[in-house]
Amino acid sequence: MSHTIRDGEKLLARVRRLKGQMDAVERALVAEKPCGEVLQLLASIRGALSGLTGEVMEAHLHEHVVHAESEAERAAAAEELAAVLRTYIR
Rank of each mutant, 00 (worst) to 15 (best):
M1C: 07
M1I: 12
M1Q: 08
S2I: 02
T4S: 03
T4M: 05
I5S: 11
R6A: 13
G8P: 08
G8H: 15
E9G: 09
E9A: 15
K10A: 15
L12Y: 09
R14D: 08
V15Q: 12
R16H: 14
R16M: 13
R17Y: 07
G20Y: 01
G20C: 01
Q21Y: 04
Q21T: 03
M22T: 07
M22Q: 07
M22V: 13
D23T: 11
A24Y: 03
V25H: 05
E26D: 12
E26R: 09
R27K: 14
R27L: 09
A28D: 01
L29G: 08
L29F: 11
L29W: 09
A31R: 05
E32R: 12
P34C: 02
P34I: 02
G36K: 02
V38R: 00
Q40T: 03
S44N: 08
R46I: 06
S50M: 11
S50G: 13
T53M: 07
G54N: 12
G54A: 10
G54I: 03
G54C: 07
E55Y: 10
E55H: 13
E55I: 07
M57Q: 10
L61H: 11
V65Q: 01
V65A: 00
A68G: 04
S70M: 00
R74Q: 11
R74N: 03
R74E: 04
A75S: 10
A75P: 00
A75E: 09
A76N: 01
A76V: 05
A76C: 01
A78R: 12
A78N: 02
E80M: 06
L81R: 05
L81H: 04
A82N: 06
V84Q: 08
L85H: 09
R86C: 09
T87P: 00
I89L: 14
